Computed example of a mutant assay.
Amino acid sequence: LVCADGDDEAGRVARDIVHADPNLVRAGEIAVLARTNAQLGAFETALQDAGIAVRRSAAGKGTPLSAAIRQVTALGSASQLRAWAHDTLEAVDALHAARAEQAEARQETARAAARADRAVDDLEAERRVAAALLEFLRDQPLGDGAGFRAWVAINNPFDDRSNGGVELLTFHAAKGREWHTVFVTGVESSLVPHKSATTVATRAEEGRLLYVATTRATDRLVLTAAERRAGYARTVSPFIAELDVTEPEALPPPSALRRRRRSVDPLLAALRQWREETARTAGVLPAQLCSDRDLSAIAARRPATAEDLAEATTFGTIMAHRLGEQILPLVDAARARQRDPQSKSTMTGA
Rank of each mutant, 00 (worst) to 15 (best):
W151F: 06
S57L: 11
E307G: 02
S77P: 07
G11F: 02
A42M: 05
A114F: 11
S296L: 04
A116I: 03
A38V: 11
R56C: 08
A226M: 02
E277N: 10
A230G: 12
L223P: 02
A59P: 09
K344H: 12
Q102W: 08
T346G: 06
A83Q: 14
E104C: 04
E325N: 13
A114K: 15
E188N: 01
T109V: 08
E167L: 14
Q338T: 13
N155Q: 13
A132I: 09
V212G: 04
Q71M: 06
T305D: 06
S255P: 01
F171T: 02
T235V: 06
L268G: 01
F315C: 12
R70P: 01
S66N: 12
V212Q: 09
K195A: 15
V187K: 00
A59V: 07
R322M: 10
L209S: 00
R70Y: 04
A125F: 05
R128F: 00
L169P: 00
A241W: 01
A201I: 03
Q107R: 15
D117V: 00
A132D: 12
A53H: 08
K344R: 15
Q338Y: 04
W84F: 14
A312E: 10
R339E: 14
D21R: 12
A197H: 02
P252H: 11
D160C: 05
T314H: 08
A83T: 14
F148S: 04
G165W: 06
L47T: 08
G147T: 12
R293K: 08
L89G: 04
Q288C: 06
A59I: 03
F239H: 03
A31S: 09
E124N: 00
A132H: 11
T214S: 03
V187C: 00
E242P: 00
S255N: 06
R261E: 15
V120W: 02
P254A: 10
A97W: 04
D21I: 05
R335V: 15
R82T: 04
H194W: 01
S77K: 14
S345W: 06
Y211K: 09
R301M: 05
F239I: 01
P238K: 02
L24D: 11
I298Y: 11
E307Y: 04
T235E: 13
S291Q: 08
P341R: 13
S190P: 00
A100K: 15
L267A: 09
A4H: 13
P341N: 11
L123D: 00
V187R: 00
A42C: 06
N156M: 02
E205M: 05
G164V: 02
T202C: 00
E311K: 09
R322S: 11
R258T: 12
Y232N: 13
T317E: 10
E29R: 13
R272C: 04
D332E: 15
T246R: 14
R55H: 05
K175W: 00
L330D: 10
A97S: 13
A150D: 12
G28K: 01
A174R: 13
E167Q: 14
A230M: 08
L123W: 09
G51F: 10
P193W: 03
A173Q: 13
Q342D: 14
V2E: 07
T88R: 01
Q140P: 00
S79I: 09
L285H: 10
D87I: 07
T218P: 04
